[in-house]
Amino acid sequence: MSILSSTFRLLSLAALLLTVAPAAHAQGGLGGGRKGQRLGQLENAKIAFITNRVSLTQDQAQKFWPLYNEFSTRRRELNRSGRLLRRDVTDGMTDPEIRDNFNQAFAMRQQELNLEKEYFEKFQKAVSLRQVAQLFQAERDFTKEVIKRVAGAGGPPAIDTN
């Protein structure tokens, strides 16, 4: 697996974890308040982590977070569609059906790339180019930290935002 592919997968996991959190928290959790509380804590930790890493001023944060939330929502929708495509491949499919499924998955990945490019430009209207670069690095670092902690502790504990 290439570095770009693994980075994309890590970012997708973080996006999934953090974009599911608000919906789960608003609905009282996924089957229980404790799980929803953990997802809410994860979302809050990501916000604090990114705000700290990117050194957002209050003015920048007011412009940045609505854009970032919009970006996350759109990315989550694309990731969900992509997961459904990958899950659809079955032993009963013909070769043309499998090829079509892959072509759809490739198109979905292209849409994700286009979305990142679109928001790369939009983010620069709220924060500096350097801060945009720091944002993408902070997302990767946060995802790595979440994976490390989940694998080591069986659940997402509080994440140090410094």
Rank of each mutant, 00 (worst) to 15 (best):
D141S: 15
A138N: 05
L67Y: 01
E116R: 03
L84M: 13
F49C: 04
G82S: 15
F49D: 02
L18M: 10
E121C: 07
S12R: 14
L4P: 00
G155D: 12
L16F: 04
R149D: 07
D160P: 05
I147H: 10
R75F: 06
G155M: 12
G31L: 09
E139H: 03
G92M: 12
A126H: 05
L17E: 06
P156M: 07
E121A: 13
L135H: 00
K46L: 13
Q137E: 08
Y68C: 00
L10K: 15
F64C: 02
E43W: 09
E121N: 12
E97A: 11
K63I: 05
S6Y: 11
D59W: 00
A15Q: 09
P157I: 01
L84C: 07
I3F: 06
S81D: 15
Q111K: 11
L67T: 00
N114V: 02
L67P: 00
P22W: 05
Q62Y: 04
M1I: 11
R149T: 04
L115A: 07
L11V: 10
T161G: 05
R149I: 04
D88N: 07
T51W: 03
E139D: 12
L42R: 01
E139I: 03
A158M: 11
R86G: 06
A133Q: 06
D160S: 13
R38N: 08
F142N: 03
L10V: 14
P96F: 06
L11M: 15
N103P: 00
K117R: 10
G28P: 01
Q110H: 03
S2C: 13
M1Q: 10
A61H: 05
I98K: 10
T51Q: 10
L39E: 04
L39A: 08
R149K: 14
L135E: 00
F64T: 00
I98M: 08
E97R: 08
R53S: 09
L10R: 15
G155P: 01
A138E: 03
N52A: 14
F8K: 11
A26C: 03
A61V: 07
F106T: 08
I47R: 12
Q124W: 09
F142A: 05
G36T: 08
P157M: 04
F49P: 00
L10I: 15
L17Y: 05
D141V: 11
R53C: 03
G92T: 12
D100E: 13
